[in-house]
Write a protein that binds this DNA or RNA. Sequence first.
RNA 1: GUGCCUGUAGCUCAGCAGGAUAGAGCAACGGCCUUCUAAGCCGUGGGUCAGGGGUUCGAAUCCCUUCAGGCACGCCA
Length: 563
Amino acid sequence: MNSIFEKIRSQIETAIKNAVSAAVTKGKLPDIELPAIMIEKPREEAHGDFSTNIAMQMARQARKAPVQIAHIILEEIDYRDTYIVRAESAGPGFINFFLNNDWLYEALILIDKKKEQYGEVDIGRGEKVMVEFVSANPTGPLHMGNARGGALGDCIAGVLQKSGYTVTREFYINDAGNQIEKFGISLEARYLQQIHGENNIPFPEDGYHGEDIIDHVKDYIKQYGEKLVSVSSDERRKVLVEYALPKNLKCIKDGLSRYGIEYDVWFRESSLYDGEIDETIEILKQRGYIIEKDGAVWLNGEKAGLEKDEVLIRQNGYPTYMAADIAYHRNKFLKRGFSRVINLWGADHHGHVNRMKAAMEAIGIPGEKLQIVLFQLVRLYRGGEIERMSKRTGRAISLDDLLDDVGVDAARFFFNMKTAGSHLDFDLDLAIEQSNNNPVFYVQYAHARICSILRKLTEEGVTRKAIEDIKINLLTQPEELALMKKLAELPEEVAASAETLEPSRLTRYVIDVASDFHSFYNACRVKCEDEDLLQARLLLVDSTRIVIKNVLGIIGINAPEKM
RNA sequence: GUGCCUGUAGCUCAGCAGGAUAGAGCAACGGCCUUCUAAGCCGUGGGUCAGGGGUUCGAAUCCCUUCAGGCACGCCA
């Protein structure tokens, strides 16, 4: 049993089931199939620690008023040997349960026992899951979209790991196909412009206009001179791409590494061109999903359940991005045996979601095994104004610029504060503000404060006793109870984050923990006269420290011991 | 035009396998430091859950519709 909550839920569930069947035996209730018992935490304290709406759910089938059913259940309910001390019906038919504090004390014991493993759950049972994220084109620097996708993807992966999944973090390198072609053309044009003058060489309309392309060719010329003028265009592009691509890739790797992201696999799109794309097309053909028209190879949209047909192999014989992507996902599922694949995409790719799911079905893989987390793009604010360009370089703000400005902790924290689907306004001023306005500092401060208390007590020669010797039940103040209750929630917060693929709820959770701690800190002194109480509070703050540290670890930010 | 996403307090956002009086932070206002870090705490005010229908004992949550904003509809990725 990982979570005290599981234990409580199962106690309540059992009590209700037994009560219902007792009532049925006595003829008080008709023998109907019991709906799934939902147990929730009421918002209002007066409504108990836990409540269930089972009486209301049974009402229709049982042909009795909810309140009446609730009363019948309460007549029969037996909660000896549980945490429950009182149960009562309320409102339209809720049954509210009031617990004694033992479960909170047990939560502290559990935290003390599991330490840095506290919060881990095993809903994944080792299932092999891949999280593919960022996968930025290696044709330029990382931008804000990549920054958000990176923070989200890394945290989703982290949360899944803590939930018992075997997780692989993967970056898909788009080092083939059209965009590399365009990259080459762009580099070539800039190269020739450097040598023959900007006005004498046209720059292609659909090329990459970024300054970084010019930087690359300048660097190249500095190092190798103008010898590419005399070779063929094909050769020129090839050499320039081979020069610039690894540099870009290194930039991406370094940037992400600085951001705290380490991948297990860097997968090259080009590796699919050795046959896997052809194999994939062949399978689609055998399964009857291919049509040929206008000199190209198409995925049959009607058969696949899509609005229109999609080109897979162009007239010129080159596969499209989609063809490569289908082959890539076939590789993930069939060649490497992932049973679930999670991709993080910017919202501008949402049109691709159904296409890919349909394509998976077409090659015989259930579409729901591919999960796409779409995230909305980011707007940066500074001084209340939208910020588009870096003041320093005059270019679009890159991940590196962001990290220079606000640091890794603030960036990762902010990107994980809101759900992926929400538009995100990133306030650059707030992120570097050292005040209670800034939630990153608020949480880190709570951790540092605890460490300071522990440090001070250690200096004064106070050491914590073994857990068995601590009278935890001295913790009875409202602020102590609220804090313990919050700490007890971690395992199920982790599980819920994993199930919904929304790590942002953990970020909000840890803000709550910090808040409950600060309230406790103001209401209760750890260093107090009563030796036993001191020991109990020492355990409580140390447990709080562990919880904050564990969550910050998942989000991937520091838990400073001093501030 | 078609499809997808979003719309909740002044601002930024939670809540949305239907449940009790819709929450938090910030901003505003008023308090709290001779005691473990005031980067903190306590309190007050603030809402037509975009509008309108419908389903239900019960709707911010589900369905329909209108409006507003964003995005996608390429032999781009």
